[in-house]
Write a protein that binds this DNA or RNA. Sequence first.
DNA 1: CTAATTATGGTTTTTATTACTATAATTAGG
DNA 2: CCTAATTATAGTAATAAAAACCATAATTAG
Lengths: 248, 248
Amino acid sequence: MPGRAQRKATKSLSHPPLADFKVGVDNVIFSVDTDQNRLLVLLVMRQEEPFFGQWSLPGTLVRHGESLEDAAYRILAEKIRARNLYLEQLYTFGGPDRDPREAPDSYGDRYLSVSYFALVRYAEAELIADRVSGIAWYSLEQVPDLAFDHKQILEYGHRRLRNKLEYSPVAFEVLPELFTLSDLYQLYTTVLGENFSDYSNFRSRLLKLGFLEDTGVKVSRGAGRPASLYRFDAEAFAPYKDKPMVFI
Amino acid sequence: MPGRAQRKATKSLSHPPLADFKVGVDNVIFSVDTDQNRLLVLLVMRQEEPFFGQWSLPGTLVRHGESLEDAAYRILAEKIRARNLYLEQLYTFGGPDRDPREAPDSYGDRYLSVSYFALVRYAEAELIADRVSGIAWYSLEQVPDLAFDHKQILEYGHRRLRNKLEYSPVAFEVLPELFTLSDLYQLYTTVLGENFSDYSNFRSRLLKLGFLEDTGVKVSRGAGRPASLYRFDAEAFAPYKDKPMVFI
DNA sequence: CTAATTATGGTTTTTATTACTATAATTAGG
DNA sequence: CCTAATTATAGTAATAAAAACCATAATTAG
């Protein structure tokens, strides 16, 4: 097999030898608690070294015969029972020295992390606590120190979330299936800050687009006039799929 | 070292053992020939197995102590002498069976590719032909069959280019430092197709934004009134950095 | 019963986009 | 050297979208 021969040969030539890698998958899983207007990220307590006892993004090492996406889904399924699910690749972090298991200056394994970005609905997502129970939703402002470079990965995921919110209908992946226009507006303000159109204009713009279906059902939440429950109509949205900026 | 112990232990448990990886970096390097309005991608002829003699994206395997980005820059520097350079990570392709060097159903190494997206200026980019001379710019419509899953990676890079063109000033990474508004418009039409505002409106919209500096120098290209040469003013652009869709 | 609160459905004003027109400065060709 | 074709530039008018603002409806709190 010439490929193998070639590779072995490389090691004996002038340039440094190739690195061997273990590949991990780490998930940034976001959700939103619409009742309390909190943007949440799922963290797990590490049960092994390194960083034993520290919070981290849920992750796993990739197994034989398993694709990266498979691994991402596997770790997700181990931590959470969700009815809906949005998942996409985020970024790959692979510098040397990002994992303390890499023996410095030696030719041992490197650890690379392919991160994934996921969204689930808070009310429908059931966390799977293992016996040691180290799993929890954290409000974005209260995230503690994280293992490895997971703080950086989280920050990257947060940026992606803010971007995607502006031009894709990911909001409906974290909102319950039926939601009020207020819920939707609150979601946008909690994630993006207050710096966009006021509620009234936001409403009329979105309603005019025609992919929000009014179910007619009213809900009363505390004081004030009851609000209509809406549903996202994916088919009606289709024409806007590749158009930029329909939400802001 | 508990981390290592943990890893070894894993292998003997019920779930399948972890995969070992070699990590490659593959670059999708775009350029634009403004004279002929061609969108170009850099391809190299493979000099080794697998896919010996086939065209491929320029790539390399990551070495010890080398970050992913380092590897991307290294391969770029080996193929091209460029004065300007734009580089960002694209996507990571890591499914099993994407590289024929992976022995099927065995526990040998997997091959993972972290792809990078690069832009250079055509006129200022000097290709470095090695003795076997397998390196060339290919017009996007004439790309031949590529090794591995490189066609897929290229397609992904092309999509990224189209997207970035709409909301970021990457156009000025592929245009020469001084360009006419016609050059800029042609670039947009060749990459994006004809489906956006006409030339006149494109002009006035961009000029009003104020980050295109008129040098006053005129160039005549064949018939017609001579055009002004413009320069991109990065400082003046700064306020638009996070604003969506200034170019379309 | 009244005030406070939230949702809703607008209008008006301002700004941006689109379609279109006119003119300027050059080259190509007789 | 003159005229037509060509390309660049500068604008205006019509249209559409965005932003600011306002009035009213339907509920709860007290």
